[in-house]
């Protein structure tokens, strides 16, 4: 069985064709700018710019909102209560007789806008850049190569382990197992988790053998040599400046 996961970085468009190094740098600056923005108009602009960039970069609105809406909902649940608890002497607004803290409202708005901006920038970067290119770009910008390759191998084998998990789950279900809150269920979940770890370890050994058999000497080499173009620099300047309005 092949699991039909969505592969990050598979969104085609002009943004995908840019050099990963410039993209990472631009998004990092944009994220830092959005995080440090103070005025309400600045944070709103940062969030709006992030969404506009995502849409221009061909990131599907369904995928974008499917991630943003739950995050925003959680933020409202966690911080929203402060709006209804104004401090003594604080300026309040009246909402059908309920006093609302203007300060807390402003803070909530700022937190939501910043979060939307940061999440959207990250999502856009991942959607518009295949992971191998992202890894190479990150390595070129100074991220340790070992870490980059660990991430790339993890991304590859997470799917294999997910399929292994799906097989184990099916094997349990066909023998009548159902999750319940009892000792036997916990023991079974523990055994399945242990089996996955052991199989993962065995697979790691086999993968290493396969790599060694093809001449792996500890250095990952790559065919794609990144090249900078004027469009990359223009994108960097435009994106990096967005949140600092």
């Amino acid at each position: 069985m092949t699991l039909a996961f969505h592969v990050p970085g598979s969104t085609d468009g002009w943004l995908r064709r840019l050099d990963a190094r410039w993209k990472i740098a631009a998004f990092m600056v944009a994220i830092a700018g959005a995080s440090c923005a103070t005025g309400l108009d600045s944070v709103f602009l940062a969030a709006a710019a992030a969404i506009a960039l995502a849409r221009c970069g061909c990131v599907s609105s369904r995928r974008l909102y499917a991630r943003i809406v739950p995050i925003v909902s959680l933020l409202i649940v966690f911080f929203g209560w402060a709006v209804f608890r104004p401090r003594p002497g604080e300026i309040t607004s009246n909402f059908y007789g309920v006093p609302l803290s203007r300060f807390a409202l402003a803070m909530l708005f700022a937190i939501v806008c910043k979060t939307v901006a940061v999440v959207t920038f990250i999502l856009t970067l991942f959607e518009a850049t295949p992971l191998p290119e992202l890894g190479q770009g990150a390595a070129a910008l100074g991220v340790p190569r070992l870490f980059v390759h660990l991430v790339l191998l993890t991304q590859r084998y997470i799917y294999v382990l997910a399929e292994e998990f799906a097989r184990l789950r099916r094997a349990l279900r066909v023998r009548g197992y159902r999750n319940r809150c009892n000792r036997r269920s916990f023991a079974t979940i523990g055994a399945v988790a242990g089996t996955l770890v052991v199989r993962g370890h065995e697979q790691a050994d086999r993968v290493y053998h396969a790599m060694a058999a093809r001449g792996f000497d500890g250095v990952f080499r790559s065919l794609s040599a990144p090249r900078s173009a004027l469009a990359d620099i223009a994108f960097f300047v435009t994106t990096a400046l967005q949140p600092s309005h």
């Binding site: 191998p132 790339l152 697979q203 086999r206 053998h209 790599m211 001449g215 080499r221 790559s222």
Partner: peptide, 23 residues
Amino acid sequence: FQNSDDQLFSATVGDDVAFGPLN
């Protein structure tokens, strides 16, 4: 190898086939 998943560790097919020749 017996299990192809042991052998295909790169993120794309092109990278995987190129792995040996690059080495």
